[in-house]
Computed example of a mutant assay.
Amino acid sequence: MASQSQKKTPRAGFAALIGRPNVGKSTLLNALTGEKIAIVSPKPQTTRNRILGVVTRPEGQVAFIDTPGIHQAKGELNRYMVEAALSAAEEVDLVLFLIEPPQGETLDVTPGNRAILERLQKVGKPTFLVINKIDSIPKAKLLPLIALYGQEFPFAEVVPISAREKDGVEQLFQVVLGHLPEGEPLFAEDMLTDQQERVLVAEYIREQVLRHCRQEIPYSTAVLVDVFDESEREPRPGTPPGQLGGLIRIAASIYVERDSQKAILIGKQGQMLKLIGTDARKSVQRLLGAHVYLDLRVRVEARWSERAAGLRKLGYE
């Protein structure tokens, strides 16, 4: 057995996931934590807020911060999201810069990624190049891609992964941990995220809007939970372990910017809203471990994504 003096001092700290929209930051956060903390969709700009995911092991603890995709910001909401991402890079111990392999034959550093690297140069934090979706690129192209990005920025580490397949995710965690300062855990061992349940519920509902609605609707949509009634949450006596117990009553409002969007979201005879509600309820029940009564309403808040007051009202502080 190793003596006390031979035991490694645990490490702890923060790492931000930074990158363009749809490079897989939220998928990676979920893979690292083993839980669905961040919603995922093929549509860009799914993540709107910084999301904390904590991974605790005997050898240390890493608090990962998922951030909105950095893009050319037009409008108040987009500027809010980009600022949330860039400010996170300034507040952590190290940055994980995620990219995905180019789709065509040509290997290059895209203008969007080059602009992010210019900002990260100014931040001055140790930065990893994390190449996601390596299952989508021939291995022969991987080394030239690494060399190309290495000419743009002095990366502390380069880690190829596939977040969706969980390939390289454990290796990434260990490399991140090795670069963090020695210290005791910053959060309780059983803590996974700082997101409140009602915030996660709102995001799960928005995920179904992203999934079911056509292009124009998701980006004009926000969700607020109006009622979260847990008075009947305690499982009934005799509920078998692992089965849903108790009841939580939830009422939520889905906000859009125009009456025409409201009509689309509700659908003919309410079918679209019913479909969104049915799938959202299933996800929320798995999250909360209880039966859920879910009441959804669609409301219009004109131009909310373009106004600072609209952002504040809908929870984007």
Rank of each mutant, 00 (worst) to 15 (best):
S162C: 15
T106H: 09
P181Q: 00
R119H: 10
F155I: 04
D108G: 04
P138C: 06
P144E: 05
L98I: 02
P126G: 02
I131Q: 10
L117K: 00
I205M: 08
T106S: 06
I134A: 04
A188W: 14
T110K: 13
E207I: 07
V209A: 02
G183W: 09
Q171I: 05
P101E: 04
V158I: 11
V199H: 12
Y204P: 04
E165P: 03
P101F: 15
D194N: 08
F187H: 04
P101K: 07
L117A: 04
D190L: 15
P101C: 13
I116W: 02
D108E: 10
D135Q: 00
I134Q: 14
E157V: 04
I116E: 06
K139G: 00
G124T: 07
D194P: 05
R198N: 06
F173D: 02
N132S: 13
E189P: 07
L192M: 01
T110V: 09
A202G: 11
E105D: 07
E157C: 00
R119K: 08
E118G: 07
L96I: 15
I205A: 07
K122G: 01
E184T: 12
F155Q: 13
R114S: 02
K125A: 02
V109M: 06
V209E: 14
V176G: 08
L96H: 09
